[in-house]
């Protein structure tokens, strides 16, 4: 019985299209994996040719990936990749760059200060807030435990 306002959201489930879990997961795996593989090539490149250490090579690698991602957003390619890959292009650091660039670009019409600069972190801000808060809390706890014992 579909004509039941109280239980509509339950009863209507039979009419919902199936989400292609396997296909979506494969696409995310493939694209995400390839982005990381490309990152590994970059890292190896920076270690061999610019004498970065294994620990410090992460910095130029991430910066390069971010540069490429922001350009892809600018040229209108990253959104197409994102629609195809889902989490495969959201989870890598390139997705972080895309949230920053796309939000800034979208609000360009409202000006450089009130549009671009104000909206730069409108989507990406949440990542930094949660990252900093969780790292600070965990850091304090860990330091407290280390000092106590």
């Amino acid at each position: 019985m579909l004509n039941d306002p109280k239980n509509y959201s339950e009863n209507v489930k039979a009419f919902q299209p199936r989400i292609p879990y396997v296909k979506n997961s494969l696409k995310a795996f493939l694209v995400g994996g390839l982005i990381c593989l490309f990152g590994q090539f970059l890292e190896t490149f920076y270690i061999h040719f610019f004498h970065f250490t294994k620990q410090s090579a992460g910095n130029p690698t991430v910066a390069t990936l971010i540069l490429i991602a922001t350009l892809m957003t600018g040229f209108g390619i990253y959104d197409k990749l994102a629609r195809f890959a889902g989490a495969g292009s959201i989870v890598p650091v390139t997705g972080f760059a895309n949230t920053i660039t796309s939000a800034a670009l979208e609000h360009k019409s409202e000006g450089i200060v009130l549009g671009i600069a104000t909206n730069l972190f409108s989507l990406a801000g949440a990542v930094i807030v949660f990252g900093v808060v969780s790292a600070a809390v965990l850091g304090i706890i860990r330091l407290f435990i280390e000092k106590a014992f």
Binding site: K27, A28, G32, G33, C36, G86, V91, P92, T99, V127
Partner: peptide, 28 residues
């Protein structure tokens, strides 16, 4: 690098699809 990076993204995709998370919730 390919396998582990891909696997992390795959877990993310499942969280998006199954729990209907938004991308913002996922990355956070």
């Amino acid at each position: 690098a390919f396998l582990v990076g891909g696997a992390i993204c795959l877990i993310g995709q499942l969280l998006l699809d199954i729990f209907k998370w938004t991308p913002a919730h996922l990355v956070v």
